[in-house]
Simulated scan of single mutants.
Amino acid sequence: MSENKAKPTFSEDEFGKKLDRCVTDTLIKAAGGLALGTVFSLLFFKRRSWPAIMGTGFGIGVAYRTCERDLNSDI
């Protein structure tokens, strides 16, 4: 009699590593968007705050899409 155990698609350690990469990626891309938005704000938009906020939002959005794709790749 052979035991038929279901093998998980990925272990908790791999999930933790992917989640760590997602958090790091989000922080880096949000900071990059903030920096780029701040530069554009200072140079072109008379020190308005919306370019910095918009750049941060774009960075977080790109990181979210990347994390979602990375976490769902093993399903």
Rank of each mutant, 00 (worst) to 15 (best):
Y64Q: 05
P51C: 03
F10P: 00
K29H: 05
G57H: 00
E12W: 13
A35Q: 05
T9Y: 08
F44Y: 11
L36Y: 09
F10D: 06
R21A: 13
P8F: 10
I28Y: 06
F45H: 14
E68A: 07
L19H: 11
R21K: 13
M54C: 07
S2E: 15
D74M: 07
E3S: 13
L19P: 00
L43I: 10
F15Q: 13
M1P: 04
A52C: 02
I60H: 00
V62H: 05
I75D: 09
V23T: 08
V39R: 02
M54K: 02
W50H: 07
K5Y: 09
L71P: 03
L34D: 01
A30T: 13
E3Q: 12
Y64P: 00
F40N: 00
T24N: 12
E3T: 06
G37H: 04
V39N: 05
G55T: 02
D70K: 10
K17D: 13
F40D: 01
G55E: 02
L19F: 13
G55Y: 00
T38Y: 07
Y64T: 11
R21H: 11
R69P: 01
T56L: 14
T26R: 05
C22I: 09
D70Q: 14
L34Q: 01
G61A: 13
W50V: 03
V39F: 11
A52P: 02
I28K: 07
N72S: 14
T24L: 15
P51H: 04
V23R: 09
S41V: 06
R21E: 14
G32F: 12
G37Y: 04
L19Q: 10
E12L: 15
D13M: 15
W50T: 03
A6V: 07
R21L: 10
D13V: 09
F40A: 04
K29A: 09
L42S: 12
E12H: 15
G16D: 15
A35L: 15
N72E: 08
R65S: 06
D74K: 12
V39D: 01
G61Y: 08
K29Q: 06
T38F: 13
T66E: 11
D70N: 14
K18L: 15
A30C: 12
I28F: 06
G61N: 07
I28V: 15
I28W: 06
F10G: 02
R47W: 11
V62S: 12
A35W: 10
K46I: 00
E68N: 09
D20Y: 06
K17R: 11
L36H: 05
K29I: 03
F15C: 05
K18G: 08
G16H: 09
N4G: 04
G59H: 05
C22F: 14
